[in-house]
Design a protein around this nucleic acid. Structure first.
Length: 555
RNA sequence: UGGGGUGUAGCCAAGCGGCCUAAGGCACCAGAUUUUGAUUCUGGCAUUUCGGAGGUUCGAAUCCUCCCACCCCAGCCA
């Protein structure tokens, strides 16, 4: 069932309460990625949450890039991220950047200095770490903590003017070096980085830190609910402190929810980057990647991704979702919209000996048997066809109701054939089948006096097109590739995650697929033309297999 | 051993003191229908059970206490 009812979760409950208490008139959220990499399906959870709330509450969600670290960020990621969000089906009024607020942010920093709530620290990074204390021991004050407001203002001005080298000084909030919450032990809020910024160019050589930037940017934008993941729970105290101690225009509420985890894959940007750089996959949009661009290239629909997120829900519990849930959501969507066609992945030639040579029959096959409005297309059947290697067994086990020596099977939309001869090569491999067909079983007519349970797909040998078909399987062969901390997660990679078949035979209509169309190759799965596919070089990606009860029985 | 979180079936997840002898989805198991071993449909799937132990209450998964397990935090990353 596609989720059509409005989602409910603890965050929406908080919003409902805030609304009925008159705390806000309009709900404002934001999706705040850092433009330092590609989005993955975990981000889709946040996008769905933030944009979905804005949509349902008639509010506003802005896409804001948290571009406060010029060393890591690039403009090309901004474009890619925008494209991904749009692909998922969301719109926003304007693209914001934290860097848009650098002037205001700088003003807030000066304000803190003037209030005696921030100071320039001249300790080295190592010393700062030492002074911070540990999880169980309090930190101690920096000797620079007591600089006067004037001196701090002057020093900070010099930092901004570029008079110091990277790392010489930082600006710190003056809170409490003994706080049990380490985020409150005088966090660094500005650092010196003589580095070109993808948007502000060389206008700045000091850049604000995430904690300082994030809440204040939320406030500048009038965000009402600032939704983030669990690891920021400890930062909320700082988020609130900053808002309470500056003249920020409002005080958004930070609410944390748990990240999305999927088994048989990894979701960390660091690990995904490794896979790309190490050549384990062919890029960020490799169809095996859990990235948005990977899923897109694989053939997932935006609706299926949204529905998947809606299905797994929003809570504060750590969770690992089974791949099967994602697969179910794409099958559910495609079942209703994908035209059915026939394609033979691993071809086995069949000659129907009693079918006249050079003669063919045209069959009007429905594009979608359950819905006539999706039309039909014509397929050709003749003496020579290809069937799937898997649909023939020389020594079939019980319950195998496909083809075997002397057995009968129906060609989908065609007639019943009986296998009369098996032709093998010298090494004993089956090369070709000889069959006889029963003319009385055309157009669906059942054979006299016997039952034919097996129905197999096929293509006409003289009317099919050849294509490369890429079969994808899970990227890792272990449910949790990171389980063993002592070993490289790449050891858990599934060597069979990509299987390329270069001589598959497809029915003629697949030579020029409709743009952005997903097809069901009957009995096999759902397929999508790869971005590099074209006339004369057809490439289809398998999105997902069909459920396959036989495969389970057969092992 | 400091602080912040979380614990409901194999995986998610509703539940917010009485209508819970605990929704729903995925997975799984039976069966029906089927020219896709698909889809669809039916039934089964936590009967003193909600991490554990106590307690409050006429009544608790829901409130209190203690305990246990797991996750996050010591970047001039986000």
């Amino acid at each position: 069932m596609l989720a059509t009812t409005k989602p409910t979760n603890f965050i929406r409950q908080i919003i409902d309460q805030d609304l009925s208490a008159g705390k806000h008139d309009v709900i404002v959220t934001r999706f705040p990625p850092e433009p330092n990499g590609y989005l993955h399906i975990g981000h889709a959870k946040s996008i769905w949450l933030n944009f979905g709330i804005a949509d349902d509450y008639n509010g506003k969600c802005t896409l804001r890039f948290d571009d406060t670290n010029p060393v890591k960020e690039q403009a090309e990621f901004v474009t890619a991220i925008e494209q991904d969000v749009r692909w998922l089906g969301y719109q926003w009024e304007r693209t914001a950047h934290a860097s848009d607020y650098f002037d205001q942010l700088h003003g807030f920093a000066v304000e803190l200095i003037e209030k005696g709530l921030a100071y320039v620290d001249s300790l080295t990074a190592e010393k700062i770490r030492e002074y911070r204390g540990t999880l169980t021991e309090p930190g101690k004050d920096s000797p620079y903590r007591s600089r006067s407001s004037d001196e701090n203002r002057e020093m900070f001005a010099k930092m901004r003017a570029g008079e110091f080298a990277d790392g010489e000084h930082v600006l710190r909030a003056k809170i409490d070096m003994a706080s049990p919450n380490i985020n409150l032990r005088d966090p660094v809020i500005y650092r010196i980085r003589h580095h070109h910024h993808q948007r502000t160019d060389n206008a700045w050589c000091i850049y604000p830190m995430y904690d300082f930037t994030h809440g204040l940017s939320d406030a500048i934008e009038g965000v009402t609910h600032s939704l983030c993941t669990l690891e920021f729970e400890d930062h909320r105290a700082l988020y609130d402190w900053l808002l309470d101690n500056t003249s920020a225009p409002c005080h958004p509420q930070q609410i944390e929810f748990s990240r999305l985890n999927l088994n048989y894959t990894v979701m960390s940007k660091r690990m995904l980057t490794q896979l790309v750089e190490n050549g384990n996959v062919q890029g960020w949009d490799d169809p095996r990647m859990p990235t948005i661009c990977g899923l897109r290239r694989r053939g997932f629909t935006p609706a299926s991704v949204r529905n998947f997120i809606a299905t797994v829900g929003i809570t504060k519990r750590d969770n690992v979702i089974e791949m099967g849930v994602l697969e179910n959501s794409i099958r559910e969507d495609l079942e209703l919209i994908a035209p059915r066609v026939m394609a033979v992945l691993r071809p086995l030639k069949v000659v129907i000996e009693n079918y006249p040579e050079g003669e063919y029959e045209q069959i009007e096959a429905p594009n979608y048997p359950r819905d006539a409005s999706m039309g039909t297309r014509t397929i050709t059947l003749g003496r020579e066809i290809y069937i799937e290697q898997d649909d023939f067994m020389e020594h079939p086990p019980d319950k195998f109701f496909r083809l075997g020596p002397g057995r009968e099977v129906r060609l989908r939309y065609g007639f019943v054939i009986r296998c009369t001869e098996v032709i093998k090569n010298q090494s004993g491999e089956v090369m070709e089948l000889r069959c006889q067909y029963d003319p009385d079983t055309r157009r669906g007519r059942p054979p006299e006096g016997r039952k034919v349970k097996g129905i197999i797909h096929w293509v006409s040998a003289n009317h099919c097109v050849e294509a490369e078909v890429r079969l994808y399987d899970r990227l890792f062969s272990e449910a949790n590739p990171q389980a063993d901390k002592g070993r490289d997660f790449k050891q858990a990679l599934n060597p069979g995650s990509l299987n390329i078949l270069s001589h598959s035979k497809l029915e003629a209509s697949l030579a020029s697929p409709e743009p952005d169309a997903r097809y069901q190759f009957e009995r096999l799965g759902y397929f999508y033309a790869d971005k590099n596919s074209g006339a004369g070089n057809l490439i289809y990606n398998r999105i997902v297999t069909l459920r396959d009860t036989w495969a389970r029985i057969a092992g």
